[in-house]
Design a protein around this nucleic acid. Structure first.
Lengths: 212, 212
DNA sequence: GGATAATCTAGAACAAGTTTCAGACTTGAT
DNA sequence: ATCAAGTCTGAAACTTGTTCTAGATTATCC
């Protein structure tokens, strides 16, 4: 727990306490409904009712269903990030650690497949109007992966490319699993395959392999 | 691989000529509307009107908007596959050839960004009910990549994994570009990065990889 | 404490995807 | 040519995301 974990919402006008509470209620209702039946089960009228908020207010907080679900994903990712940090992966080299971390995240998603469905579908369906929020999710994901790599210094440009490709694979593999076109085993293989890219971008010299 | 290009539609009952014509009109209208304004511009009522078909009939041919757009993508991919085959990529090794092919495909999509938007969004938004059609698209994409690799024999399991990861990256990178979160240059880098995976899976020794 | 602006509520209204249905038209078999 | 089965049309209805409005509530500032 360092000094980050804010700027999740740009906070143009800081929210009052009751507003913060409303926002929480909405996100909670969203996650709950999503857990039940995925993307389709998150119906704006129901979210509004579940969170005791008028429909118009819901739309003031989240200007579309996709915005709402992407915000829900931000929320969940944040939880996951702190959870993952508590027990860092134990692998020898960065590529193993990243694969291990992503598989751990994957297993977490498996526990709520409908929720995962809603969030990921929203994420990839988002159009330009949601770009800032999607970008936030992307940065969170990147942070998780970089954390898992456990680099000493800042990543090289090559490493950032590899991380982006890993993220691409992660999202897309998740989708193929969610829509029943790939098995869990297959996702695992794909993740492990793409993580080998990290090896390609490791500094050539044998050297400091820091765990910790 | 010459005797393919069928089974695009399972053809449970073979279509009459007029039906085939209707199907063509529908797909054409779909692509036309998509080219204009992307996913949102493909409105079922308009597609029906443009193709001179009743709304109910449109739904008989394509049970949802997503089905329609995924079928549109099948159609376009088929065109692209035959186009790409006319001038095979010239790179030295497989990974270069694949990257070159994908970038060529990418440039083709750039010419109709709205159409690309509609097709790709539909593809990643598709739920289980569209799995067979999405799978067909996936197989077509795989075929294009394998073609570009120009292997002698059948691909190894490792190579197939690499191809799947490349596909993942391709779709996801396309989405980030379409939603304005990545530049064309960035997509190029990502594609080239992931294609290096192919080098990793090249058989170490010159020799046959064939199990009996 | 009261004026004023911002926010919230309830509910109607609108838009586009999807379903349904009665009646007209095709097709295939006899 | 005729009948039955299947298909197509036109139009209405239904669902759910989104927008809008008028009035009630809350927050802010003097």
């Amino acid at each position: 727990m360092t000094a980050e974990a804010k700027a999740v919402t740009p906070a143009s006008p800081p929210l009052t306490e009751r507003q913060e509470a409303r926002r929480r209620r909405i996100l909670h209702a969203s996650a709950q409904l999503a857990s039940r039946g995925g993307f389709d089960a998150v119906q704006m009228r129901e979210v509004a009712e579940s969170s005791s908020v008028a429909l118009g207010t819901l739309y003031r907080y989240f200007p579309s269903k996709v915005h709402l679900l992407v915000a829900t994903m931000q929320d969940q990712l944040q939880h996951m990030h702190t959870t993952l940090r508590k027990r860092p992966p134990a692998g020898e080299d960065p590529s193993e650690r990243v694969a291990e971390t992503l598989m751990r995240a994957f297993r977490a998603l498996q526990r709520e497949p409908h929720l995962a469905d809603a969030m990921v579908r929203a994420l990839t369906f988002a159009d330009r109007s949601v770009s800032p929020e999607v970008d936030t999710v992307s940065r969170l994901t990147t942070a998780i992966i970089l954390d898992a790599m456990g680099l000493d210094g800042p990543p090289t440009a090559e490493q950032l490319s590899a991380v982006r490709v890993i993220e691409h694979t992660w999202h897309s593999a998740l989708i193929t699993w969610l829509s029943g076109r790939a098995s869990i085993a297959q996702v695992k293989i794909d993740i492990e395959t793409v993580c080998r890219l990290i090896e390609l971008t490791a500094p050539e010299k044998a050297g400091s392999q820091r765990p910790g």
